[in-house]
Design a protein around this nucleic acid. Structure first.
Length: 419
RNA sequence: GGAGAGGUGGCCGAGUUGGCUGAAGGCGUGCGCCUGCUAAGCGUAUGUAGGUCAAAAGCCUACCGAGGGUUCGAAUCCCUCCCUCUCCGCCA
C-alpha cells in the first residue's frame, strides 16, 4: 500500500508507475474519496468537540442538582448528526481503503521500463552450460529411469500438478531442503523459522496477495483461510501491527514451507513434469530492515541465493526484471535462472525482491528510529531456492551416460546413498 | 464440541451504582540534578493515528480485543464475533 499523502503529492509519478507495471487503477477516485474523507472528518471532529463540551456542562448541572433537560434536548439533534456523519465517514474510509489496496507499488528508479519480459535486463551469469558426449535427457526421463517421481499417482490422489516423489527422489528432495536451510543459517546468519502453511485473510492482505490475486490461491471457505503461495506470507506477517525497537533490526529469517498455487490459466504453458506445479517446496529468506539499508541488502540476498546454486555447481544467470514483470508489491526484483541442459532452457528458481515499505504499510510493521519517530520498515524476500526446478537442473546437469545420476558432493552429507 | 474466568498504555495493575480517566499507582525507559564509581535518591518526561498548520509548537478528534446497540454522554450497560486461561469430552 502506498501512503495517501505520497499519492496526493505525486499523482503523475504514481500514474506512470501503474502504467509501467501494466496495471489498472484509478487515482482520481482515490483522490476524490480522500477529499471527501477529510471533509467528513473535519465535520465529525467539530461536532464531537461540541458534544464533549456540552456533555461536561450537563454533568456539571446534574452535579449541582440543576435542570439540564434543555441542553439534553439540544444535544439529541447533534448526536443524530454525529451518527450520520460517522456512518458516511466509515463508508468512505472503507471505499478508500479497498481502492488503495489495488494500487501497486512504485518501481525503483533503477528498474528498466518495459512492457514485457523482453525488456528484462541481463545482469551476470556463473558457470557454463554442462556439456555431454551423449544426448542429455529431460528430467522426467531421468526420473523415470531412476524411479524418482510418480506423477500419475500424484494426479490420482489429488490432480495434475501435485507431484509424488518416490524413494531416492523423495530423499533428494528432502536433502535439498535440509542443505539449503542449514546453508543459510550457517553461512549467511539467518535465523531459522517454521510457520503455518495456512493463513487468514488479514495476513494474505498484508503482503499484497489479496485482494488482487484471490483467484490464484487455494481458499478454505469454512474459516476464510488460505493455503500459502509462498513462505513470504506467514513470515513477513509475523511482526504485523508491531513497533520494533531499532536494535532488533535488521531481522533475517529463513524458513521452509510447501507452496500452493492454483496457476489458473497457465495450462499447457511449460507445465511438463516439475516445471510448473500446484504444490512445491521452497526455502525462503525474509528480511526486515532499516529503509536506508534495503537496497544494499537486496544485493546481498541475491548473493545468498546465488551461493546455493554455486554450491550445487549449477550454471545460472541473474536477470533484473523490467517494470512490467515486477510483481504487484515489488519495487525491484532479481530473478535467478538455472540452466537445464535436458530441456535446453533457463528456469526461474529464485526471485529476490525489495518491497520497500509497501508491505510494511499494509501489515503495519514499524520501528522506532534514532530520532524517536515511528517509521515503516522495509521488507525483502527471496527464494533460496524453490526445489522443483532446482531438482530439474540437478538431474539434467548430473546425469551420466549410463542413465544414473551423480549426486554433487555438497549434497552427499544430506542424503543416504546406501539405500 | 461443552462449562467457567478473563481480555485496559512497553510491562504489571486500578477503574464495572455510566459524567474533568488517554486513563490512578507501580515497574521499565529518556533527559537533568546529586554522590569517587555503581546503587540509592530527587526532579522531569515518556502511546498511536487522523485533522488544522509552510513547518514546529499548540489546539481538536479517535482509540481501554473487534464490530454494532442503548444514552445528551460508555473502558464502564446490552448484543455478536475473535482471542487467552482452567476444567470436561474427542483426537494426532
Amino acid at each position: 500500500m502506498l501512503d495517501l499523502k505520497f499519492i496526493r503529492a505525486n499523482v503523475e509519478l504514481v500514474n506512470q508507475a501503474i502504467c509501467n507495471k501494466n496495471e489498472k487503477a484509478d487515482l482520481g477516485i482515490i483522490l476524490a474519496l480522500d477529499d471527501k474523507r477529510r471533509k467528513l472528518q473535519f465535520d465529525f471532529d467539530q461536532l464531537k468537540a461540541k458534544q464533549n463540551q456540552v456533555s461536561q456542562e450537563i454533568a456539571q448541572l446534574k452535579k449541582n442538582k440543576q435542570d439540564a433537560s434543555e441542553l439534553i434536548n439540544q444535544m439529541g439533534a447533534v448526536a443524530e448528526q454525529i451518527k450520520q456523519i460517522n456512518t458516511d465517514l466509515s463508508e468512505v474510509e472503507k471505499e478508500l481503503e479497498s481502492a488503495l489496496l489495488f494500487i501497486p507499488n512504485v518501481p525503483h528508479a533503477s528498474v528498466p521500463v518495459g512492457k514485457d519480459e523482453s525488456f528484462n535486463r541481463y545482469v551476470r551469469e556463473w558457470g557454463t552450460k554442462a556439456e555431454f558426449d551423449f544426448t542429455p535427457l529431460e528430467h522426467l526421463d531421468i526420473a523415470s529411469q531412476n524411479n524418482l517421481l510418480d506423477m500419475p499417482r500424484g494426479t490420482k490422489v489429488t490432480g495434475s500438478g501435485f507431484p509424488v516423489y518416490t524413494g531416492m527422489g523423495a530423499a533428494l528432495e528432502r536433502s535439498l531442503i535440509n542443505f539449503m536451510l542449514t546453508f543459510h543459517v550457517q553461512k549467511h546468519g539467518y535465523e531459522e523459522i517454521a510457520v503455518p502453511f495456512i493463513v487468514n485473510r488479514k495476513t494474505m492482505t498484508g503482503t499484497g496477495q489479496l485482494p488482487k490475486l484471490e483467484n490464484d490461491m487455494y481458499h478454505i471457505e469454512e474459516e476464510d483461510f488460505w493455503l500459502i503461495p509462498t513462505a513470504e506470507v506467514p513470515i513477513t506477517n509475523i511482526y504485523a501491527d508491531e513497533i520494533l525497537p531499532l536494535n532488533k533490526l535488521p531481522i533475517k529469517m529463513v524458513g521452509y514451507t510447501p507452496c500452493f498455487r492454483r496457476e489458473a490459466g497457465s495450462y499447457g504453458k511449460e507445465t511438463k513434469g516439475l516445471q510448473r506445479v500446484h504444490q512445491f517446496n521452497k526455502v525462503e529468506m525474509v528480511r526486515f530492515v532499516h529503509p536506508d539499508d534495503s537496497y544494499t541488502i537486496l544485493e546481498e540476498m541475491v548473493n545468498n541465493a546465488e551461493a546455493i546454486l554455486k554450491a550445487l555447481g549449477l550454471h545460472y544467470r541473474v536477470i533484473e526484471l523490467c517494470t512490467a514483470d515486477l510483481s504487484f508489491a515489488s519495487a525491484k526484483t532479481y530473478d535467478l535462472e538455472v540452466w537445464a541442459p535436458g530441456a535446453g532452457r533457463y528456469l526461474e528458481v529464485s526471485s529476490v525482491s525489495n518491497f520497500e515499505d509497501f508491505q510494511a504499510r499494509r501489515a503495519g510493521i514499524r520501528f522506532r528510529d534514532n530520532d524517536g519517530k515511528v517509521k515503516f520498515v522495509h521488507t525483502l524476500n527471496g527464494s533460496g531456492l524453490a526445489t522443483p526446478r532446482t531438482m530439474i537442473a540437478l538431474l539434467e546437469t548430473y546425469q551420466q551416460a549410463d542413465g544414473s545420476i551423480r549426486i554433487p558432493d555438497t549434497l552427499r552429507p544430506w542424503i543416504d546413498l546406501t539405500i
